[in-house]
């Protein structure tokens, strides 16, 4: 792990909805090559943090740098998997077509996806174990399969940094294992992966880096150093005991 190389640097980031701060003065440096979980209670601003890094939400203060430059200049380095529930799965389109959408960023405006993009999409489908489902209408997929499709769509972007918003929500155990294996492979390949995560039990098993968030940043660092009762209690506000700790 090259901890000296900072992939994402966030300074004094404050985000507000209707003047009510959702994220307050966040400073965060995410090293290159980590597989990081963002944990925190509901309404802690986990998704908002990802969305403001990705320029989907405009912060009222602070800055975000991806490898030292603003996100707008570094889009090609970043892939994003939104929450599964954020889209309408009854939309008239196929699994392959959704995966192809991952190539739209590198294509830019107006240019259409061609054979090369289709090939990349099929490869990504194969990686997530969904080859054979490409012509399936997306509403005909199970929750786990839909999540795999979303993951494939991010893989096709061939990015250096991956943001995922609750990729394990509503998926079966097999899919969860498959997804985490792919994420671990990405880390092995030197990519940085940031995941909004809910299941505290699996944090030590899945991740090597963790950020505790509850409107303010509580702590960030290696799981083995900072994933403890003290930080959990600070984040969740109740006396937390993680029995799963070593």
């Amino acid at each position: 792990m090259k901890e000296n190389n900072i992939a994402i640097k966030i300074d004094d980031l404050t985000v507000a909805y209707n003047y009510k701060p959702v994220l307050w003065d966040i400073d965060l440096a995410i090293p290159e090559g980590v597989l990081m979980a963002i944990v925190g209670p509901n309404g802690a601003g986990k998704s908002t943090l990802i969305k403001s890094i990705l320029d989907i939400i405009k912060p009222i203060a602070g800055s975000v740098k991806i490898y030292g430059k603003p996100y707008r200049k570094q889009r090609h380095l970043v892939a994003y998997v939104p929450q599964k529930g954020s889209v309408d799965w009854d939309f008239p389109t196929t699994a392959l077509d959704v995966v192809m959408m991952g190539t739209y960023g590198s294509l830019g405006w107006i240019k259409r996806p061609g054979l090369k993009e289709k090939k990349a999409a099929l490869e990504a489908l194969e990686k997530v174990g969904m080859l054979g489902f490409q012509t399936r209408q997306i509403s005909q997929l199970s929750g786990g399969q839909q999540q795999r499709i979303f993951l494939a769509r991010a893989l096709v972007q061939n990015a250096s940094i991956y943001f995922m918003d609750e990729p394990f929500q509503g998926v079966d155990a097999t899919t969860e294992k498959a997804i985490i294996n792919i994420l671990k492979e990405l880390r092995k390949a030197g990519k940085t992966v940031v995941v909004v995560h809910h299941d505290l039990q699996t944090v030590p098993e899945y991740f090597d880096w963790v950020t505790f968030l509850n409107v303010k940043k509580i702590a960030t660092g290696p799981v083995k150093d900072i994933f403890n009762d003290n930080n959990l209690t600070k984040t969740y506000g109740i006396n937390y005991k993680v029995s799963i700790q070593q």
């Binding site: 320029d55 989907i56 889009r75 994003y80 954020s86 739209y104 769509r153």
Partner: peptide, 13 residues
């Protein structure tokens, strides 16, 4: 942008 406005924004479309 109709199917997934979030991704469209992230991709700069």
């Amino acid at each position: 942008s109709t199917f997934d406005a979030g991704l469209a924004a992230a991709l700069g479309l």
